[in-house]
Structure formats: C-alpha cells, structure tokens
Design a binder for these strands. Structure first.
Lengths: 205, 205, 205, 205
DNA sequence: GATGAATGAGAATTCATTCAT
DNA sequence: CATGAATGAATTCTCATTCAT
C-alpha cells in the first residue's frame, strides 16, 4: 500500500490495458486482411503508432496472433468444458454448445475469424500445436455428442456423423465472417434459428 | 493424321497444356499454403522449374490467381445459369444447385478453396471486382430460390431467408477444405446427405 | 535557445536534411551512370546504407527521380517567371534567361543532367507528365522572346526562330554535362561568353 | 558462278541484309528508349520476331550497339578525314565539317542519338574504347580548326576556343534528337542556318 | 512508451541469354 | 531462321525486426 506499490500496480494495469488494446486492434486487422497479408506496419497504423513501437509490447508478429488465439481458445474451452460437464442429454448439450459458440463469436469475432482462416497454416509451426489439439478436442466433443444422440434415438441414424460434425463446425465458425453485433439479428436469435435449421431442416412440414 | 498435322496439333496442345498444368500446380499450392503465404518460388518448385521461368507464362503471381479464379467462376456460372434457366420448382432448383456445387468442388477443389479463403482480401483490388459481382449474384440467386420456396409453401416461413442463404453458402463451399475425391464418401453421396440434412434436419422424427 | 528547443529544431532539420542528403546522392549517381543503368543498391552504397533502407525514405527508385526533377523544375520556373514578368526588352530578357540558366546548372548540375538525358524516356510515364509541360512552356517562353526580338528589330529575321530556340535550349542544358564548379571558367564567365557567341557569332569582324 | 556458289552468295547477301535490317530496328529502339532501358525483347518485338531469335544474328545486346556505333563512326571519320585532308582554310573547313555533320545526322540519326546519349556510360567498358578515341579525335580536330581560325584572324580571339568547341560539339549532335528527315527544314538548310548562327550570331546588325 | 532510421533476409519480378526442336 | 521454354543472375521492393535516442 506504499505509494511505490500503488504506482507499480497502476503502471502494470495500464500496461496490461494497452497491451489488450493493441491486441484487439491487431486482431481486427489480421481478421480483415488475413494474417500473412497483414504487415506489422498496418497493425501499428491502425493503433496510431509506428511499426517499431509495437516491439516494445510484443516479441513478434507471431506472438501477437499467438496471444489472440490462445486467449480466445482458453475462454472457449472453459465454456465448452462447463457445458459438457453439466450432464445434459445429447440434444440439450447440442443446444448449449451451439448457443455458446455464437456467444463466443459475438465476444471474439476477430479471433474466431483468424482461427477459422489461419489455423491450417499456423498449425504447421510447433508453437501453435495447441491449435491442432483444439481441433482434435473439438472433433471428439462433437462426435461424442452426435453419437450419443444417435444412440439415444434423438438424432437420425441415416446420416454420417462425421459429415454432420463438419457441417456444424464449418457453419458455426464461418458465421464470424458476416456477423455484426449491430446487425438485424442478435447472436441469440441467430443461434436459435440456426439450431432449428440444423435440427428440423428448412422444409415446411 | 499426317505427321505434320499431328505435330502442329500436339504443339498447340502442349502450349495450352503447359499453361493449364502450371495453373493447376499453382492452384494446389495456393490452396494448401494460402495465397499470400505462398511464394512464387514454391509454386515454381512444385512445377519443377525455376522461379523466374513462371514469368514466361504469367505476368505476375496475381495474374495466376486471377486466371485460376476466373476460369472456375466462368464455369460455375455457366452451370448455375443452366440450372436456374431450366424452369424447375424451388425445391428441385435447390437440389440441382447443391448437387452442382459439390460437383464443382470435385472438379475445382483448389480453386474453390482459394475462392473461399482469399476472396475477401483479393476483392479489395479492383482487378478482382468480378469476385464481388459473383458474390452478389450468388446471393441473389439463392435468395430468389429460397423466397420462391417460402411463397410456394415448400420452405418454412419462420426462418430468416438471409440466414439460410448464408448457412448454405458457407457450408457448401467450405466442404472444399476437407473433401478428398478419394475419400470414403463420393461427391454425390455428400451432396445427397447434405441436402437431406438441410431440408429435413438431423432430428429423428 | 534552451537545449530542448535546440533539440527539436535539430531533429526536424535532420529529418528534412536526411531526405535532401539522400536525394543529392541519388541525383549524383543517376546523373553519372544514367537513371536506368543505376541500381538502387548503387545509390544506397553511395549513401552508405543498405539498399532496402532507401525505401524507408522513398517509395521507389522512380519517386526519387521524380522528386529530384520536380524540385529542380519548380525552382527553375520560379526564376524564369520572375524574369519574364519583369517587363524587360527582348535582348535583356534573353540575357537574363541565359544567365539564370547557367546559375541553375551551377546549383542543380545533377538534376539538369538527368533532365537532359532522361526526360524523353521518363515522359512516357504519365507520372512525369510535368516534364512535357515544362518542355512546352520552355518552348513557348523562348519563342516569345525570340519572336519579340525579331519584331523589335533586335534579332535577325533571316533565321528560323524555331531553329534558334532548339539551338539555345540544347546548348544551354548540355553544358551541365561538362560544367565543373571548380573548373577554369565560372558559371558567370561561361554565361557571358556564351551570350556573346550566340548574339554576335564567333567571326572576327 | 556454279549454282552452289550463286546460292551461297545470295544467302550471304540475304543474311547481311537481314542483319542490317535488324540493326536498323535495334538502333531505332535504342535511340528512342535508351540503350539500357531497352530490353532485347523490345528490339525483337519491333523486328517482329521473338527475343531469343535475335541471338541467331548477334552475340549479345552489347554487340548490337557496338556494331551500330562502330559502323557510324567508321563512316563519320572517313568523311571528316577527307575534309581535313583537303587543305582548306579554317573557315571553309568549319563550313564543310558542320555541313557533313548534319548530313551524317540525316543518314545515321538513331546511331547519332545513341552515340550522344550512351557514349559516356558505354565507354566505361573496354570494348567501347574506340568511343573515347573518337571523342578525343573530335576534340583535337575542332580545336585545331578553331585555333587556326583564330591565328588567321578569321575567328574572334576573345572567346575560349575550348568553350566554342563544346558549344559546337553539343549543338551539332543534339540536333539528332529533334531532326526529322521529313521536317520543314532539310539537313542542308539546317546546316546553313546553323553555320550563320554560329559565325555571325543572331543579332541584327 | 514511442520515434526515426536503419538492417538484412527474402520476396516478386526482370531480363539477357541458351538451347532443343 | 525462328520458336517456345527455360535458366539464373541481378534488380527492385517488402517487411519483420532492432536499436539509439
């Protein structure tokens, strides 16, 4: 509680704040221009500073995406884990996961876009091994929900669950590319309609 | 059938063939590594020639993607136009468009991936204005099919057709990223299941 | 006069100064080796930095010549305009323009050489349209002086003024290629003899 | 006179003709675009063949300029030598040399332009040593004429003959850059007026 | 924290030249 | 004679990164 300590605390906080601010800017730019097509200078420009100045905050361009993606994925999996651990039925779990995914898109739109567009390329780098892990976990999680649903007689048995899985995976995340938090439909409404579509189809019955 | 005629035929063919060959290689590499992350040298390596030699055939890296994408889109729209001009009902049109899309993925997998992953960035360049045109046409085409289907009572009226459109658009093309022509499911089988999924949903009834 | 003020002054000066310094170096090299035969690396070497570093200051090799030439021409025309607006007689204007031209050669020798040697080629590029403008203005300016001189009975009427104009234009600027500010004749002395030569001829009378 | 011999003769002639034709084209292009800014492909395009095909006729781009320049200079010096050996007075020699120079411009316009614009750069190459020789001879020839003229009381003694020499040299050759054989003034008329200008000046007397 | 000026590796592109056909 | 396709070195330009101030 000495002045010195308060100082260093507020400095640390300010620093973290600036860092987060810069990461948000970087994420935005990476998402819209593509990671490898984006120059460090473009990120800096968007942040209103000079290219070199970014290196006071980050080691490298790579460490920026790294932090953007790992922050997002950490939060994502905390949420997913909470849902899958809740002991819900297949259909309810399905519901909850989809809804949560759209909430994540709402929260981390740029990060989701980067995840969606750049994962394949980045994953070649050992540093981004966790991306592969995440994709694997994602697959297992969904297959487990779908397979259980088929077993329970809730989901159709005449469709390839592997295909359904890809179908869900792709459509959910790709929504990040057109979703606008200020658009006509809220994240929750999109999730609701999306769930209806996937569960019941678009045919009039 | 005289030797002379065979000669001039085979040269003409070789000429066009070499170009197509190089474009196929380039498309493959662009698709797998990402356009801007791919170096011209990588394309050349994959083609078994030196970097500079590509410039005998193409003006620039950009003109390579340009040709890859415009060739694909020209063929795609020729097919789509044939279908929409056939005077089918909404549901049959839906069917035919989806099936054709998967056939296109089968035929132009790398081009589709590039279209899917790089369109946004490339479209910033006036040279690629046709990408925006294509996206616009795509949207109009699908909305027209969906709206007609809703009017005809074939498609549900309680879902946002704009949302359905995006849903379809994204899932169809994204399949290019995992589709293997030598995989377990054929393009037609994928299309069939995909259509069932979208039309009837994944719920057991 | 506080240290702070001196600092910021000297930084601002250094900034503009560095650019001007590099341009002076580039002009020197372009003038002596020829613009298109000069490599960016040669300019950088002459400036004591690496090739890539030049691009921190300039967009391209082209923009370097551009700046060199436009700076020179801006100054040149300011001077010429001052003279032609002074309301002098044809012969006095003639005098003043020639003298000023030699002063410009003294001041901008490399730029003049580049102007002289590369204008034709560069002018094909729309970016250098001002070179054509300048040549046109130059022609009009001289023809107007010469024609007025003929009318006033000061210049001979039996010579083609178009020919005289070219004669003057070429000889004046071409002097840049051999003029040395440390040579035996000063710019003013050269101008003086030059004027005598053109006005009175080289014949003993 | 055997058919074989006639054949080889006419082939040789045709070959030489084609060679001269290509050189004329090359000279034109080098003159208008500048030697180092001109690509071999541009020359070939202008000749209606492909880049590589030029190498059937010439060893290199360099050997093309070489042949262009040396052909011109050989002819030029043959003429100059004839004149200086004729034992004329200073003024008559002056007359004859200028007239001959304009005739050369008429005959070898592109070569003269190349000589004028590229000599300095090319001369750095030992292969083009003859360019320096030519320049040196040129200087000596003119200084000798001028000095003799001053001694004989024909030319003014109050002007620096070195300056007059440069003045003549530059204005004469530079005319190649604007001279058109189909222009309003013939080579002879230009020479005539030029001689008057230089000898008597442009002042009305 | 940020700036201005560089570095240096590597990217895209150019171009003279070669060569089998 | 000419072509088509390459080579490979050089060139222009880009960009992540560094660092003294």
């Amino acid at each position: 509680m000495s002045p010195r300590r308060r100082d260093s605390e507020s400095t640390a906080t300010a620093r973290a704040g600036r860092r987060a601010e810069l990461l948000a800017t970087a994420a935005e730019v990476f998402a819209s221009r593509g990671y490898s097509a984006t120059t460090v200078r473009e990120v800096a420009d968007a942040a209103g500073i000079l290219g070199g100045s970014l290196y006071y905050h980050f080691d490298s361009k790579e460490s920026m995406v790294d932090e953007i993606l790992s922050t997002f994925l950490t939060d994502l999996w905390a949420s997913y884990d909470r849902i899958t651990a809740a002991g819900l039925g297949a259909r309810e779990t399905f519901h909850a996961l989809i809804a949560e995914s759209f909430r994540m898109i709402d929260l981390y739109r740029p990060a989701v876009m980067i995840y969606q567009n750049e994962s394949r390329h980045l994953a070649a780098n050992p540093r981004f091994g966790y991306l592969l892990d995440s994709m694997r976990r994602f697959r297992e999680m969904w297959l487990s929900v779908l397979d259980r649903g088929v077993l329970d007689g809730e989901f159709r048995a005449d469709l390839d669950t592997g295909l359904i899985y890809r179908f869900i995976r792709d459509t959910v995340w790709v929504a990040a590319s057109w979703y606008r938090s200020d658009g006509a439909l809220s994240a929750d409404e999109i999730a609701r309609q999306y769930i209806v579509m996937v569960l019941e189809g678009i045919l009039e019955t």
